[in-house]
Nucleic acid binder design. Structure first.
Lengths: 111, 111
DNA sequence: GTTATAATTCGATATATGTCGAATTATAAA
DNA sequence: TTTATAATTCGACATATATCGAATTATAAC
């Protein structure tokens, strides 16, 4: 086990990502953001963001819990957040989806 | 949140997969199997399998813990196992890597 | 049949996680 | 400057998870 053909040097980084996506609420949030921010749909950078309140409103969990989940996603570098007035806007970390796609493609091809 | 543009109907199935991959040992095991079983490398189906003992030997954890982790991976439909004599052989569930690649590709493209 | 090997299950335990409501902070509006 | 809104942090709690060693099951070898 110790001598892998392929060096997954940042294995922990990915296991952290998967931990963040292992909760159904967090996965839902992440996919919502990924969907909401899909390129071509919105014209400006600002429009490709959504507030914490918007995210939490439909989930049926307390705002503090939403906040907790967002922190998990942020710490896994899956999303980014920025204050804009009273709201905190969230959006997917650029390149993250590509990283995940690449990760599994490499696993599939063995490199 | 409730009216997604895209229906991720099997969200739970994927969050279970990610939960299984959220542990560094399990991710290591999974990638090892994915690597070991990569197509073209082995000629026969049987050669594309590895025993539980082989998997656990390099991880530095108790056999019972390895067994537990394998069960998690199996329940998430990430791997398959089959007894062969005294050994239990493991290999990645065919199509799983494709499913994961597709999942993130769809998330990226918004469908 | 007895013994050895491979793996699983069980029970115990420590740690991590998800959740809430209350209290707090940051900003905008009145 | 007081009040309202959005979000986070904190403390508490219940549940889930990772881990081990001991006991158990399944198979093969003698």
């Amino acid at each position: 086990m110790s001598n892998y053909k392929n060096d997954y040097s940042n294995l922990n980084q990915f296991s952290e990502m998967f931990k963040a996506l292992s909760n159904a609420y967090r996965l839902e949030i992440f996919l919502y953001l990924a969907d909401y921010c899909r390129p071509g749909e919105m014209s400006t950078e600002e429009e490709m963001r959504v507030s914490v309140g918007e995210l939490g409103s439909g989930l049926g969990i307390a705002p503090s819990t939403v906040s907790h989940h967002l922190k998990e996603l942020r710490h896994a570098h899956l999303i980014r957040m920025e204050r804009n007035g009273k709201n905190i806007e969230c959006w997917v970390e650029p390149d993250t989806l590509d990283q995940l796609i690449t990760f599994f493609k490499h696993a599939k091809e063995g490199n």
